[in-house]
Simulated scan of single mutants.
Amino acid sequence: FKIATQWPIIGGLACYVFSVVVWIVGLSRVDVSIAYPMLSLGYVVNAFAAWYLFGEILSLQRLVGIGIILIGVVVLTRG
């Protein structure tokens, strides 16, 4: 119980609950075939956040992968 009541744990759980609510609202308004591919944008955001915050290297291979993800999302949203 002591660990569960620490502010970082409570804050993390609150963020998780918020993200679930946003996801449910999103699914209620957008086709699932569009909503699920949008989750892949999280990989793009995480890659750039890791580069910016932690100094991780964005190699050519990673940038190509990010580009493929972005092209795939664009293709799915226009179809």
Rank of each mutant, 00 (worst) to 15 (best):
F1W: 12
F1C: 14
F1A: 15
F1T: 14
F1M: 15
K2R: 13
K2A: 14
I3P: 03
I3S: 12
I3H: 11
A4D: 10
T5V: 10
T5M: 08
Q6S: 11
Q6F: 12
Q6K: 12
P8L: 05
P8E: 03
I9L: 03
I9E: 01
I10A: 01
G11Q: 12
G11W: 05
G12Y: 00
A14W: 04
A14S: 08
C15I: 12
C15M: 14
C15K: 13
Y16M: 13
V17H: 07
F18S: 04
S19C: 07
S19V: 08
V20N: 08
V20S: 04
V21R: 06
V22H: 06
V22I: 09
V22E: 04
W23L: 15
W23E: 11
V25W: 04
G26A: 02
L27C: 01
L27M: 01
S28H: 08
V30M: 01
D31F: 15
D31C: 10
V32E: 07
S33W: 01
A35S: 10
A35V: 03
A35N: 10
P37C: 07
M38T: 05
M38K: 05
M38E: 03
L39A: 08
L39I: 12
S40T: 07
L41R: 07
L41Y: 07
G42D: 08
G42M: 13
Y43S: 14
Y43P: 13
V44I: 02
V44M: 01
V44G: 03
V45Y: 05
V45K: 03
N46Q: 13
A47V: 10
A47Y: 02
A49C: 09
A49V: 11
A49E: 06
A49R: 08
A50W: 13
A50K: 09
W51P: 07
W51I: 12
W51G: 09
Y52W: 13
Y52G: 06
L53S: 07
L53E: 07
F54L: 15
G55H: 06
G55P: 00
G55K: 05
E56L: 14
E56G: 11
E56A: 15
E56F: 14
I57E: 14
I57K: 10
L58V: 15
S59G: 10
S59L: 14
L60H: 10
L60N: 11
Q61E: 15
L63W: 08
L63H: 08
L63Y: 06
V64Q: 07
V64S: 08
G65Y: 00
G65I: 02
I66L: 13
G67T: 00
I68A: 07
L70R: 03
L70H: 04
I71M: 05
I71K: 00
G72P: 00
V73A: 05
V73D: 03
V74W: 06
V74Q: 03
V75F: 02
L76F: 04
L76D: 00
L76A: 03
T77S: 09
G79F: 14
